[in-house]
Design a protein around this nucleic acid. Structure first.
Lengths: 150, 150
DNA sequence: TATTATTGTAATTTATATTTTTACAAATAT
DNA sequence: ATATTTGTAAAAATATAAATTACAATAATA
């Protein structure tokens, strides 16, 4: 399939809103111009983030979206779970021959080991806040402006 | 896109070969019957596993594929890297507006944090061997035969 | 109050990743 | 020799995500 960049784009949207709040009108069109996504996709993602309690938005003219809580209190895991729900990090093939010893037991076996790996990754995401991401973005921008290549 | 189950299927194939070696003819067609995958896909995956040094195969009639080393010495990470190569666990949207502070710096920022999370997951996979997986499958099969539901 | 800008959401279309199918030359056992 | 099977490529089918189109609902403002 097409590769999904929902998670990456959701972080982008929240960082953009936090950085540009009060500086430019935060319409879905302006945000879409930075993410280079259709404004409909931006609104869909924002709707999802709103339902997850990470974002507050308004309908109609002069919208003014803002983070529902401080960027320090939003972890990358919060954002990941908001947009990916229970999508597994490692996919399991559930369409196997149940008559076979392997085909009949591989799913539950892999579920266990995959879960361990997934938990380790999500725990790391839980230790990174949106504020960390924004700070890193701003540092990289200053480095760029100072002519420092990395 | 269609969801890829390459990793899951590759583990299945290796476990199947290990368990049924010497018991039934290990043709790609027989293996495909357990994985419920086309025999062409099975041969492709086996070809990939062979190139990665995990499997030994023969062409022609009476093929006799076998693990290239003991199942204890093959980790799930070895298999993952063989079939997924450098495919990232978390996708980054590289198509953003480079003129924007966020769009111009988000990729390198996320690469860093995503890498930490990915490494944590892959480290867990590195601690699980194909032998562990096979043992778990055989235990689950015995439980099933004993009428124990889990 | 009428007008304008924008959101929120659904339906359709398009793009693209993955698997399946088809095909066949090459390899090997019998 | 013949039959079986691999290894691999090309084309078709399938699945999922994003883009596009459309429009009613909402809210600012002239």
């Amino acid at each position: 399939m097409k590769v999904s960049t929902r998670f990456s784009d959701a972080i982008h949207i929240l960082a953009f809103i936090n950085i540009y709040h009060g500086k430019i009108p935060l319409t879905s069109d302006n945000i879409a111009g930075s993410v280079e996504l259709s404004s409909v996709m931006v609104r869909k993602l924002m709707s999802t983030l709103k339902k997850a309690g990470l974002l507050e938005t308004k309908s109609g003219a002069s919208p003014d979206p803002r983070l529902a809580k401080p960027a320090e209190d939003i972890s990358l895991l919060d954002i990941y779970l908001a947009v990916e729900k229970d999508k597994p990090l490692f996919e399991i093939d559930y369409d196997t021959n149940p008559q076979c010893i392997v085909g009949g037991n591989i799913q539950k076996t892999l579920e266990y080991y995959y879960q361990e790996a997934e938990n380790a990754a999500l725990a790391k995401l839980n230790h990174v806040s949106l504020a960390d991401v924004i700070e890193t973005i701003l540092v990289k921008q200053k480095q760029k402006e100072a002519g420092i290549q990395k």
